[in-house]
Every structure is written in C-alpha cells, then in structure tokens.
Design a protein around this nucleic acid. Sequence first.
DNA 1: TTGTAGGCGTTATCAG
DNA 2: CTGATAACGCCTACAA
Lengths: 332, 332
Amino acid sequence: MKDVAKLAGVSTSTVSRVISKTMFVDDKTKARVEEAIKKVNYRPNLVARGLRSKSGNLIGLLVPEVIHTTFAFFIKYIEESVARYGFNLILCNTHNDPETEELFIDSLLRRNVDGIIFSRVSDKSRVLRILENTNVPIVVIDRALGSENVHIPAVLLDNYKAGCMAAEYLVSCGHTEIACITGPLDILLSRDRLEGFRATLEKHSINLKNELVCEGDFKFDSGKKAIDCLMAAKKRFSAVWAQSDLMAIGVMREFSRLGFSLPDDVSVIGMDNTNLVEMVTPTLTTIAQPFQDMCDTAVDLIMRKISDGEDILYKRVVLDPVLMVRESVKKV
Amino acid sequence: MKDVAKLAGVSTSTVSRVISKTMFVDDKTKARVEEAIKKVNYRPNLVARGLRSKSGNLIGLLVPEVIHTTFAFFIKYIEESVARYGFNLILCNTHNDPETEELFIDSLLRRNVDGIIFSRVSDKSRVLRILENTNVPIVVIDRALGSENVHIPAVLLDNYKAGCMAAEYLVSCGHTEIACITGPLDILLSRDRLEGFRATLEKHSINLKNELVCEGDFKFDSGKKAIDCLMAAKKRFSAVWAQSDLMAIGVMREFSRLGFSLPDDVSVIGMDNTNLVEMVTPTLTTIAQPFQDMCDTAVDLIMRKISDGEDILYKRVVLDPVLMVRESVKKV
DNA sequence: TTGTAGGCGTTATCAG
DNA sequence: CTGATAACGCCTACAA
C-alpha cells in the first residue's frame, strides 16, 4: 500500500479511500492510484483489514458431518451463496460433539467472523449461551432449537408438513398398512415429522401402530436394521416411510436382499431428495427439502444483519417440503 | 490482553510469552498470568496474531465440486486433519472455473493462509504461476499436473496401477470381453487408468477394442449414456470397468432398466469406493482410493513445511489403490 | 479533496 | 527472565 501511495504520489489514506470507495476522491488522483495499484499488482491484505475494521468477510459454518448426508448440500449451497457476496467460508465439522462445537465457535469468534451458520446444534446449552452473548450474527439452519428458551434466528423446514405429505401420498396410493422409520426421536424434527405423518393417517382413519414405528439414525444401516426388526417380528405392511433417503435406500436394499421385489411387494418413500434417489432401482419417491432455498435464506439473513444491521433476532423462516414422485411407491 | 497484563501485574509481552510458550517465563508469574487469563476469560485474537506473525492457523482447500463425488471425502478428511493441528479450513468451491479459481487463490493469499491444498487444478497456467511465485506451501491432491513444467508437491493415487488391478481382477474372474468407461480423457489420471487397464489385458492376450472404450465424465449420467451407446451399437462384452463408482452405478442402473440381471448378465467394477457401493444391488466391487491416507499425507506435508521449513517442493507421494471385492462381478 | 496520526491486538526485537 | 517499544497493514477521525 505504501508502494502504491508513493508511486501515485499520494498518502496511504487516499489509496485506502480509493479502494474502499467510501469517500469521494478526485477523479484524477483516483485514476493515478488505480494505475499504481495495477502496476505493483497491489492486493489489500484481508487480515489487516479484518483487524482494523473487525470484518474480514468470513462466515463460519458448523456441520455435524460432511459425507453423504444432507449436510453436503448445506456446505455446497452455503459456500456458493457466501461466495456470491465475496465472502469466504470456514468449514467446521463438529462430529456432533459439544466440545468440538465449542472449540470451533471459540475459534470463529476469535477470528472475528462476520457470521456463523449452524446446521444442527447439539443441545448443550453452553454453546448456546456463548452464542447468545455475542453480537456476531448467527443463524441456525435445518434444526430448530426446541425447548431451550433461546432466541436465535433459524431457517427451518416445515417438518410436520413433510410428514403430512408422505402420509397423504401413501394413502392416495391406496396403502392402509404403513410403517415409519424415524430419525432419532430426541431430535425435534424427527418427532415433528412423525406427528404430521400420524395425524394425517388418522385423518384417513388409519391408525399408525406403534409396533410399525422404528427409530433410526438417518443413516443407511439403520434403514436395513429397521426392516430386519420389522420382518423378524412378522409385521405386516405394504408401505414404509423412511425419514431420510439413506434409510429409505437401506430399506430397499434389505428388502432386495430378502428376496422381495420393489415396488410390487412393498412401497418405499424417502425424505430429502438427495442425488441418491435416481441411482437406485426403482428410483425413490421422496419428500424434497429445498436445500438451496434454505441456504440462500440463511446467508441472506446474515448479510442483511451485517449490512443493514437489520434485526433478525426473532426471525424464523419456515420453508415447505415438496413431494417428488418416482417409482418406489406402487398404487394398490 | 491489556486487562490480563494489568490484573497479573506484568506487561503484555509476558502475557504473550505465556500464551505462545515460546520462551521461558518464571513459574510464579506464569501462574499469575494464567489465573488472570481465566479470570477475564481471555482468548487471543487470531486476526491480530495473523497480522503480526503472518500465520493465522488457516488452510485453504480448493475443490471443483462438493456434492456426491470423491471431493466430499477430501473435504471431510482434510478438515479433520487440519483440525487435529488446531487449524481451521477455508473451503472454496471452484466449479472447475479458472476465473473462480484465481479469485479464491487471491483471497487465500491475502488472508495469509498457512497453506493451500488443491484437489484438482484446472490446467490454466496463470493460477499455476501465481502458485509458483508465492512462498505459501501448496500441495496438489488427487490430480497430477501433467505436461506443465511446474513444480508443486502432490499427493497422488497410482492410477496406472488402479487400471491394472481392475483388469487383473476381471481376467481372474474369467472375463475376456471387456468394456471400459473412462473419465474425461483430457485428464491425465483417466488416461493413466486406461493405460494400466489396457496393458494388463494385453498381458493376458486380451485386446481392449477401442469400440468398447467410452469416455465419460465421472458422473452418474455418463455411465448410463455409455451403456446406451454400447448397446445401441450392439457391442458384446461380459464385464465393464467404470472409472468412478458413480458411473458404475449409472451402468448398473441402466442395465437394470434394460432388463438385464446383475451380475449374471454382465459384471461391473467401479472405482473410488464411495459410500454408494453398499447401497446398490448387487453391491459394487470397486478399486478403492485411500482417501484418508491421501488427505493426511497432504496435510502432513504442509504442516512439516510450516513447522520445520522442510523442503517439500519436489515431493511427490504416490499411494496405492486397493481392490474391494463385493457382489457385482461374476466369475464365469 | 487530501494528509497526518493513532490504533486495531498481537508478537518480535532489544535492552535491562 | 521481563519490560518497553516498534512494528504487522489497514482504516478513520481530525485537521488542513
């Protein structure tokens, strides 16, 4: 910067002003400065800027896992979205471990990040308290903070409605004996989905028997295990909703292994609409999450807070799921 | 920091020394300082540290894509690896676009990152030249810089050997009429794999006909398309190697759709060993990439350069693929 | 419109 | 072993 200033015959403050475009600079000097900038190929140092102005155009993203889950979508779309704003993304894989979570949060705050996006927070309140006591904009994405009486803006899916849609579709296809494989039931969204599912079935005078509800963990293996469980208990059902595509595919895979033919012998509907749905046979009917919308919304909230100081504290955006019909559900 | 110093009755330099553990401090004063640190809950600001010492414990990672590809593994393992060193990761999705790539590199350098890991570089030389002219440690992972006469350390898979292993296994299962779906042939590793594959078949007196070689793009759809192509041309073959799991699964999916039974009618072997391999029916035999090894090696190289100043400039680590036998290849 | 000077929170250099 | 003091590179009052 000094070099530029010298070359252009101005002071560093003028150079700074030309770069930040925050004050009026005489066109002629501006031109000279810009030329000098090009000549020495000057690039403002973002660390120094971050130190001085407490804003280094950085966003932190915390996810509990990276591979082959819905979080990959959050990572992708959030990175793309912040990049559009000229920001960089610091990615933190918390492994769902509260301690790791806390460490990362600490790091991010010490880096003066401009915002933090959380996809899934563990329910440990110490992290939440840290977050409440900072003025760095925070947005939670994908997972509501349930009982905790904490006010952090969130971008969420209408999970209750997702359950309704899954049920409605299965019923419309003529199914009456229906099973459900949920996510971990200590997670609010799993319960919301189940409630919507159950309520809608009841609306159609179908009782979702408890013995046909299995708790999974959203992963592939738990879909397989759930089917093993149900089959071992000789339960009867013609359709099953798995609350994640991975589990749904686990279900399909296990039925195949057991010699069932899909969707003739049993119908499966998933949730998420990951890329996997087109890769299996039959292709998977599923409830889509609007990942990109969710991510864009989350980033927008942060950016608005940053630039306008807009009060997003009590904002809570709820987006709608979408039914994606493919081949894995049979009309009976 | 000032507060801590005041509370402990020392100067800020002493506080700094206690934190960085770089010089000897009297045990008693050290204890006082540490107590004061706890008392005011002091956390060193990483931006200021980054500015002063030009090292903010940050690593930049550039990938061409995030979702459902092998890059997800790189992201996961590299994040985990740098986290073990107490570093954070800045994730940049370049979309394979040279301009975006350049922008990100620029950003990273201006942030004084301690190192940059590239998984796939586009062949545009301007980026490479930037990288050569900086003293920030760089490691390329996964994709060699071919013809370019550029010296950047790299962590690579022995792709030639991968081709050999795929061929060897198919031959050992009795196949003699074999097809291959490659990655983009302007990428060196695709060619390496094909050459190893072809050479090994020839060693067994099998000629890999050009009409049985299809160029894909590593993605799911191109696997499907390749099969359409081969079938339309009424080619005969009993086994096919796809140079990525995604394409292999595209192949399987397309065969299923066309009414073939797998692996009885045709055998498929993939490459990568992604999580998908267990999700399809039949499960996919594949050539595994040691993703975690590759990532750990890449990060280790960078860290050694950072801490010991070790000269990694001409280092080139080549790791071996591993055959993973599952159900998708039939012995004939 | 432009220059000067001070400081953002650390660390490094140099005395003591 | 410890304390001043000066930077790191930039931004921003304040003054001119």
